[in-house]
Amino acid sequence: MFLTGDNAYDVYENPQKQLEIAKLMDKTFPSDFTYSFCDGIIFCETIGLEVLKPKKDFPSVLNHPIVDLESLSEFSVPDPYTSGRMPVNLKSLSLIASAIDKPLYVSIQGPFTLAVQLAGATHLLRSIIKDPEFVEALLAFTTETVRRYSVAAQKAGAKFISISEPGAVTLNPERFDKYVVTNVEKIYGDLTCWKSMHICGDTTELLENMLSCNIDAISLDQIMNYEFVKEKIPSNVVLIGNLDPIDLLGRGTTEDIRKETIKLMKIHRENDNYLCAFGCNCLNDTPVENLKISINTGRMSYEELDKIKIRELI
C-alpha cells in the first residue's frame, strides 16, 4: 500500500491493479514466488459480516454474528464463482499466475480461524464445552467454505497454498487434532499443489500435530527457536521462516537484518528443506530498504554464505 498509495479495496476490486501490484512487488522485492495482495477478509466479507475498512490498513471484522445453530442456519457456504468478491479475486489470481513466470503463492485463512472470526474467539472456545454440536456444525461450514475456495484458487493458478490458522494457537494438542487437523486434511486432500500451514505465536506444543497434516511445508512465528524446531522437521517437509517482521525488519538497521538473516541461513546450511522467509506479516511501514536487504541476503548462494564467518556476525 505504501508503494503505490492505494487502499486495500482499490486493489481487491480491480484485477488489473492486483497484477500491477504483483509486478511491482516482484520487481522491488524479488522472491521465489509471486503473490496476490493479502486478503484475509474475503471469507467474512462474502459471508456477510460487518467489516472495518481503514483507508491505509487491512480490513477486519467488526461483529461475530454466528453464535449458535440457529444463527448458523441463516448463512450459506459461499460459491467461489458467484459469491461476493470471490470471482473478482479468482480473476486476479488467474491474471497474476499467467503474467508472472513464478509459482503463485496464496495464503488462505483456515477453517478454525474463520470460525473464530464468525463466532468470536471467546464464544467459540466457550462453545467447545457448552455447545459442542454448534462447534462441529460451524467447523463443517467453515471447512467447506475454505475447501471450495482453495480448490478454485488452485484452478486459477495457485501453485502453493498456505492455510493460515492463527486462531488455533488457543487450543491444546488434543483439541487441535479434533478441530484443526481433521478439517484441514479435508482441504489438503482436495489440493494437488504445494500445501503449507502457518500458525502465529508459540506452537511448541502443537508442532507435532501440525506436522501430522499432509503438508509440504510449515511456517512458524518468529518467537519459535528454529535451531530447536529444525530437528523436528522431517526431510520431506520444508521449514519456512522466521525472521522477525516487527523488531528486526520493521525497526532494525539494514546491518542488523543482514546479520540475522545470515545467522538463520547458517543454522540451516546443512538442511535442504529450508526456505528463508519472514515469521509473519510485516508492519505496513516497514522500510523498503529493510525488506530489500533481507530478501537479497536470503537469496545469497551457499558459496557466498560459506565465505562469511560466524565471528563476523557478532
Binding site: 471467546t122 472456545l125 466457550r126 467447545i128 464445552i129 457448552k130 488457543t170 487450543l171 491444546n172 483439541r175
Partner: peptide, 11 residues
Amino acid sequence: YHLPEVIVCAD
C-alpha cells in the same frame, strides 16, 4: 485446564 475451561469457569 485450557482456555475453554477457564472461560466457562468465569461464566
